[in-house]
Design a protein around this nucleic acid. Structure first.
Lengths: 355, 355
DNA sequence: GAATCATCTCAAACCGCTTTGGATGCGAGA
DNA sequence: TCTCGCATCCAAAGCGGTTTGAGATGATTC
């Protein structure tokens, strides 16, 4: 059933029916009700393809997911982010278009999305430092919002980001306040912008207490369980091991915890751990009591906000760039405690672990 | 630059240009080359919206992701599955449309996708027993492929699935061969079809060795770290604890491992663990040596296959339903070993753990 | 030389909707 | 009575492609 059929059935012109359904004022209220009723009765839905062509709008938003060929990692936060963004789109009658592409064809993909008229705007994921996508998208005139920021980019752009710097600054201070002096950073890959900012927050917090960050206590790798394990294991085997870890993600932290336990230590007593918790729905940080002390910020909520911002940008068109900086919450869990004093051996065991 | 402009620039009719670009035979080769060159030179891309309207095809595939309101879980395998499917779509010029919907509106979503003409077909995720979506989609005439199967469905349909039954049958036998008699099953929620099949494989393997499955050794819950931990912890505290665990996922298994270690036991020596490994890119089961012994089947590969099947179904239209049953591979890792004999205490310690 | 045919090209209809630019009818104001 | 404005409705022209049916051209056949 299409518009024309519905119109003839009603004895009206397609024009009037279209206007009635779309809430235009130049149609009699009784007529509108009649049209509405008939549309419902016939289960009529306007054909999206036709609307798109007629209005010149795609009514769709693109998410381009580069599959890095270097290390084939699908981002674990992706599903939750998408879930958040998707809710916003559904609510506003937009479709979400996903493009999974090899990262060397990412630029082409954006260009084609624009040329083909497949989307009205895009979300930029996982920005890197000096991310070239920002200039590109500005250049081809495709509205976009970045999830995160790209340090070094001179051009203004729309973004939604967590205050990673402050989160890790605060977490570091929290550990310092607990008496920890040797605090390790198990960071994500540092070409990712958020990882850079986290390190800077950590380094600065140490510096403001007169501590120079020890390069041997900073690692930067993929955020996997195995990488977390190996990093922590190596550091715990050092002659002067850290008493606390700042860890980039829940998954890495599972590896860190395993290394701690494998060393015969107890997390929260012998070694403290603070993680950044994206509040992933399939990786909850405990139920009532959080397992890990964490800087928490829901990536799903971020997805919602990013999507809303993009829809605004698409609607407004020429407004100046908007930003939104989300503060992470510091959640106290069971993984942190006062630094074990070198001479006070609470249970007569810890001393042996740090020869 | 649109078709008409390109045509006038070439001094040809839109008809000829369209045919030249789409490889129709009734156009002179030299003309075709001239057209192709001009198209490339002008960076011309046909407008997708127009193609869709003119051809009556959506050139898009839908993935409807229900966000269960009961327990707000975004499926962790989702990202990898999508990555696999996405590759296939890109390669074939299809777009992937994601709909994230509250699960009570899932039916409506399918109906609207069809009525609006937004997609040519859909993928059905996480089928449950007697899944109503199969009848629904058949009813509304929307081509679809199920990732998994829906036990109890009388109607034929297209599916791609892992042989979960055989995988868990085999894993159970493997443990039995190692001498384990008390084998626990930490399963996913059993309204999910795959969980049912896994249990059946496990129960049957036990039965064929004359062992009746012990209900206290079977749990069924969400596949989270915490749930895995709690299930394993409870079972290890039983008077006659299991010596081996069969675990539904990598994430659950991390919890199981934690429970094992918390009980002062060593995984692979005191307690064996076999997991099902979906080969998620962000949750690798070790690097060179697998950490966990596992039944492995790449969900990303499954995504590719499901997508290919759907594109075939869309192209063929009336072909009889197709199936594809993937066999999981049994990967031997470090988490399994012979059952610790009740009297032989290899290192003089294990005995104390089972009072 | 006329008829036939294959090859190449084009004009125009169409996909299903939106939107511009009138038409129509009616009551109010002059 | 005539004009004007307002409220309603409609015909037709689009959006940018595909596709049908037919025309033009030149070569081939008899």
């Amino acid at each position: 059933m299409n518009l024309k059929e519905l119109a003839t059935q009603l004895g009206l012109s397609p024009t009037t029916v279209s206007r009635a359904l779309n809430g235009y004022p130049e149609v009699n209220e009784t007529t509108r009700e009649r049209v509405m009723a008939a549309a419902k009765r016939n289960n009529y839905r306007p054909n999206t393809r036709a609307i798109r062509l007629a209005t010149g709008r795609a009514l769709a938003v693109g998410h381009v997911i580069p599959i890095a060929t270097r290390h084939e990692i699908v981002n674990p936060i992706f599903a939750d982010f998408i879930a958040g963004a998707g809710e916003t789109y559904s609510r506003n009658g937009y479709d979400m278009l996903l493009s999974v592409v090899a990262d060397e064809t990412e630029e082409t993909t954006y260009r084609e999305l624009k040329l083909r008229g497949a989307v009205d705007g895009v979300i930029v994921h996982s920005p890197r430092m000096d991310d070239p996508r920002i200039a590109l998208l500005r250049d081809i005139g495709l509205p976009f919002v970045v999830h995160g920021r790209a340090s070094g980019s001179a051009l203004p752009y729309n973004w939604v980001d967590v205050n990673n710097r402050r989160a890790f600054h605060r977490a570091t201070e929290f550990l310092l306040d607990l008496g920890h002096a040797r605090i390790a950073l198990v960071n994500g890959l540092e070409y990712m912008d958020f990882a850079l900012r986290r390190r800077s927050g950590y380094v600065d917090a140490l510096a403001s207490r007169g501590i120079t960050a020890d390069a041997r206590l900073m690692t930067s790798d993929q955020m996997t369980e195995v990488a977390g394990f190996e990093a922590a294991q190596a550091m715990l085997a050092m002659p002067d091991p850290p008493t606390a870890f700042l860890v980039a993600s829940m998954i890495s932290a599972m590896g860190v915890r395993r290394a701690i336990e494998a060393a015969g230590l107890v997390m929260g007593r012998d070694v403290s751990v603070i993680i950044h918790d994206d509040d992933l729905s399939y990786l909850k940080n405990g139920d009532a009591v959080p397992i890990f002390t964490a800087t928490r910020s829901s990536v799903r909520e971020a997805g919602r906000l990013v999507a809303e911002m993009l829809l605004n940008v698409i609607a407004q068109g020429d407004a100046p760039p908007t930003h939104r900086l989300l503060e992470a919450e510091l959640i106290i869990g069971q993984s942190t405690g006062p630094a074990p004093g070198p001479r006070s051996t609470p249970e007569g065991m810890t001393g042996t672990m740090h020869p």
